[in-house]
């Protein structure tokens, strides 16, 4: 939707400065863009290219390698249901089908109210907790259809906000940074060190 805003621009510049090779900052800065808009917009990629002295095609090429960067708006909650072997054996497929019915959308799409995006994923390394799913990449284990419904109801009611921050909120550095971080004059690293 947009280029990086001023606060994020400051973080981006600071992040870029921290790497001996500018290119190395690409992934963290892309996360920043995704955090800002909930997805990585074309304008943000062009802006990042400008900041890092890359071509937009290079930025897009790198970003699109990663499943977790989205290039179209996604729901506030991106739900990934694992259908790989361990989960499949104990009801992963059924859980996904249930989810499709419950949300009224096919895997790979977003509810019209922009609340949920449903995806099927390969193994998310929670095989011992099968069937597993993620909401904005935060785990829910041994999920039954009833638990799924309860979770959806809660999310629709605006609950569970602490457990599941909006899609795009990923960067560990950004989490817990004071709102007025850009004005504090502290570097992001100092912020992390202080914690």
């Amino acid at each position: 939707m947009s280029r990086l805003n001023d606060a994020n621009l400051a973080v981006a510049k600071e992040t870029i400065a921290r790497y001996p090779r500018v290119k190395s900052a690409l992934i963290p800065v892309l996360h920043l863009a995704q955090e800002q808009d909930g997805y990585v917009s074309t304008e943000a990629m062009a802006h990042i290219a400008e900041l890092m002295g890359l071509t937009p095609a290079e930025v897009y090429g790198t970003a699109s390698f990663y499943e977790m960067f989205k290039f179209e708006p996604v729901g506030r909650y991106c739900i990934n249901v694992c259908t790989n072997i361990s989960c499949q054996l104990v009801g992963g497929w059924e859980l996904l089908e249930h989810a499709e019915e419950a949300l009224g959308i096919k895997a790979g799409s977003t509810t019209p109210d922009q609340m949920f995006t449903l995806e099927d994923v390969e193994c998310i390394a929670a095989c011992t907790e099968a069937p597993a799913l993620q909401v904005n990449y935060r785990y829910r284990n041994k999920v039954t259809p009833a638990q799924f419904d309860a979770m959806i109801t809660a999310l629709r009611a605006g609950e569970l906000v602490d457990e599941f921050p909006p899609h795009g909120t990923l960067s560990r550095i950004r989490q817990g940074l004071p709102e007025n971080w850009a004005d504090t004059g502290r570097t992001a690293q100092a912020e992390v060190d202080a914690r």
């Binding site: 074309t42 071509t55 937009p56 095609a57 290079e58 897009y60 090429g61 699109s64 990663y66 499943e67």
Partner: peptide, 22 residues
């Protein structure tokens, strides 16, 4: 030195592509 085309996506979906509108 004109990196205007790039591999986009991964695996079976990999394709040569430009940046949108560039």
């Amino acid at each position: 030195g004109d990196k205007l085309i790039h591999f986009i996506s991964r695996g079976n979906d990999t394709q040569v592509m430009t940046f949108p509108d560039e």
